[in-house]
Design a protein around this nucleic acid. Structure first.
Length: 115
DNA sequence: GCAATGACGCTCT
DNA sequence: CAGAGCGCCATTG
């Protein structure tokens, strides 16, 4: 039962996700920590799941710790996310995972892509 | 207030 | 690196 929880801490999660720069990706755990919910990575994914389509929240930039897109209820969304990230310059491997070592969002780092 | 759920994370094998 | 198991917390019913 997908809850709504509009006035909950989820808004905090959305705010953090919205701060993810273009061409970068963040893990659930990272977003959770930045949102003030350390260890509540699950709730982050849960919050994103409740996001309505058309939301300005770049939920597509949020991936799991392995840099892969988690299988969600919306079939095809996984494909859309990958396509969108590729359009931003994020490369996916044959397994559909991104190189976190390279695209992982570094809060505070000026250069998104460390090189 | 208790129990169940969930787009996850971490550790071990 | 891949797969499996256990634990984390927050929100809902």
């Amino acid at each position: 039962m997908p809850p709504r929880a509009q006035g909950s801490r989820w808004s905090r999660v959305y705010a953090v996700v919205g701060r993810i720069p273009h061409g970068c990706v963040a893990t659930y755990g990272q977003v959770a920590e930045l949102a003030g919910l350390p260890g509540a990575a699950r709730q982050v994914g849960y919050a994103l799941h409740a996001l309505p389509r058309g939301s300005r929240v770049p939920w597509q930039r949020v991936v799991n710790a392995r840099g892969g897109v988690s299988p969600r209820a919306a079939w095809g969304a996984e494909q859309a996310q990958r396509a969108r990230l590729e359009a931003e310059g994020v490369s996916f491997d044959a397994n559909g995972r991104v190189d976190l070592a390279r695209y992982r969002w570094r809060p505070g780092a000026r250069r998104a892509v460390r090189r």
